[in-house]
Structures are given as C-alpha cells and as structure tokens.
C-alpha cells in the first residue's frame, strides 16, 4: 500500500508541474507588475532573484523565447505541504525612445498566476487509506475504548 501511495504522490506532483508549466500567463492573466528600464538585463536578474527567493519555493526556471522567462514554484517548502503552484512569467519588450539619439527603453512585464495544487487531495487519499485500513484490520479487542467488553486482560499499562 505504501508503494501505491508513493506512486500516487509522484503522479500528482508531476501532473501539478505539467499543469503549471502549461499555464499561458501571457493570455490568461493581466500583468501584476510593470517596469520601464534602460538596463533590462540587471532588472530581470534582480526580478527573477526576488521571485525565486521571496515569492515562492523555487522548483525550476526556463525560457520560452528570446525575451520570455518563466519561473515555477510552490507555496510551501515541500510539495506535500503546498496549497498552490505558482508560475511567474517575465517579458521584456523594447519601446520606442522619444528622441532618436536616446538609448532604447525596455518595458519589463511580470505575470503571476497560482493554481491549486493536488497535495491536499493526495494527503486526504493517503491518510484515509492508511487510517481506513488500520480501522478495519486491527482487532476489536485492541481498541478497548471503542469496543468495551471485548477483552478484559488488556490494561493501559500494557500488562
């Protein structure tokens, strides 16, 4: 049973990661933050560091285009304690400078989306299985408070 529960946990976790990676932040959500900068490299490095360290428990980071970065994380330290999976998408786009000679201005947009993780469902199923089997398999005599009078030689001192 333990192997089956562990396999179920791994399946749920990988499904959560797939679902989170599949979120299309660019069309499904509005930008949560917007910056104008002359130095997009530094700005994006700082932003990704902040997101990774403060906003989520980091899982992975990848790029899906020249100027599109994605960070995936979870709300808890471990997947099993996480209520949410989080995906942050950062894009950088060049905007036209007011004057010809000026340096180009970059607009950095940050999109954030959370989805509920399956960890709670997994914990519920796992604990119900374990406790349910425990309830059904343990002899009634060993549960003196719930089945009183089934066995008289068991005392609380284990004698």
């Amino acid at each position: 049973m333990c192997v089956a529960i562990a396999a179920l946990g791994m399946y749920f976790r990988s499904r959560d990661l797939d679902n989170t990676a599949r979120i299309d932040n660019l069309t499904q959500s509005e930008p949560a933050m917007r910056y104008n900068t002359l130095d997009p490299g530094t700005q994006i490095t700082e932003l990704t560091d902040i997101m990774r360290e403060n906003y989520m428990h980091f899982i992975k980071e990848y790029r899906s285009g020249k100027n599109v970065w994605h960070i995936i994380g979870q709300s808890g330290t471990y997947w099993i304690t996480s209520g949410f999976m989080i995906k942050v998408t950062i894009t950088a786009g060049r905007t036209k400078p007011p004057g010809e000679s000026e340096k180009p201005i970059w607009q950095v947009l940050v999109y954030v989306m959370e989805i509920k993780s399956s960890a709670m469902l997994f914990v519920t199923i796992a604990l119900i299985c374990i406790l349910g089997f425990g309830c059904l398999l343990i002899n009634k005599e060993r549960l003196p408070h719930l089945f009183p009078g089934q066995r008289e030689d068991i005392t609380h001192k284990g004698e």
Partner: peptide, 21 residues
C-alpha cells in the same frame, strides 16, 4: 493549504469506518 484543511474530513471518514464495525 491556502484556505483549506482536510483534517476534519479525514477524521470523519475514519470515524465512519470504525463506527461501521
């Protein structure tokens, strides 16, 4: 887990199994 907690649900179903016996 966010605004949810399954503990009471788990204990309710466990209670059902025991009562069923």
């Amino acid at each position: 887990y966010g605004f949810n907690n399954p503990l009471v649900l788990i204990l309710t179903i466990t209670g059902f199994f025991i009562l069923a016996r």
